[in-house]
Amino acid sequence: MMKRLTIILIGILDCGLLFAQKDKKYVQEGNKLYGQKKYAEAEERYRKSLEQSKVSVPGNFNLGDAFYRQKKYDDAVKQFTEIAGDAKDKTLKAGAYHNLGNTLLESKKLKESVEAYKQALINNPKDEETRYNLAYAMEKLKQQENKDKNKDKNKNKDKSKDKDKDKQDKDKQDQDKKNKDENKKDQDKKDNKNNRDKKNQQQDGQSPQPDKLSKEDAERMLEALKNEEKNTQDKLKKKKAGNVKGRIEKDW
């Protein structure tokens, strides 16, 4: 659906209102400049018409149009809102709400523009231009709401991902700490065992135990004992032999 935002411009004879000749002149000049797309100059002429008559309907209404064309949307919203609120004529009120809806739509205020178009149709149900713009604004509003909904959904999804990642990071940190503690315990046990073994080795070097005597050492000790016993026996035999020889009597 293409946008066709038609701005209503009130001519001199619209609404059947009478106003001073100077007002008429400035409004005519303003409308001519407006038609030439010289909106700043048109604004200046409409303001001059209001200096002559503050209640000039064409001057006020078309000044709002000049604001709109210059993208002075805040000024245009204020102008059309005041006209819509003060107008007694339904056609004028519908026109003000129509232009207000266009201004709000350009300002991306979609909900407000929809309400303005609805008010325009209440006052002029046969205005097909307003009906078209209302359908367009409602479609844009629906698209914006769906976009916001998806944005919130993705935001919540991202939050959930971040939460899961934080949990995974915490679990990893806890597991790393647990592994580190277990490795430290294992290392402490290993160090304690090494210290005990080293201490036992030092004690063994200082005080050899009998059960640590090697087989070769034992055999050498036995052999030494045998030799010592043999030497002792030999000495005894020699001593006995000496004693016998001394007791032999002389044969006369």
Rank of each mutant, 00 (worst) to 15 (best):
Q143N: 11
D186E: 15
K180D: 09
K170V: 07
D171A: 12
K189W: 14
E139N: 02
N183E: 15
K142C: 01
E139R: 07
K190E: 05
K180T: 07
N154H: 08
M138R: 12
K155A: 07
N183G: 01
A137Y: 03
K193V: 10
S160M: 12
E139L: 01
N133P: 03
K170P: 04
Y136N: 03
K177A: 10
L134F: 07
K193W: 14
M138N: 08
K149R: 15
K165R: 06
K151H: 13
D169C: 00
M138L: 14
N192W: 15
N179V: 05
D174H: 06
D174T: 07
Q143S: 08
Q168G: 01
N192D: 13
K147I: 05
K178I: 02
K147E: 00
D164A: 07
N156S: 14
K193Q: 14
K193E: 12
S160Q: 15
D169V: 02
K167T: 08
N133S: 06
S160H: 13
K180C: 06
N133R: 09
D191H: 12
E139K: 07
D176T: 09
K159L: 09
D148V: 04
K193C: 01
K177P: 05
K178F: 07
K142V: 07
K185S: 04
N179A: 04
D176W: 11
N150L: 13
K142H: 11
E145A: 09
D166Y: 08
D164Q: 04
K189T: 12
D164M: 03
D186P: 04
N133G: 03
R131K: 13
D162W: 12
N150H: 14
K185C: 00
D152K: 15
N146Q: 14
N154G: 04
K170R: 15
E139C: 00
K153C: 04
K185R: 13
K163I: 00
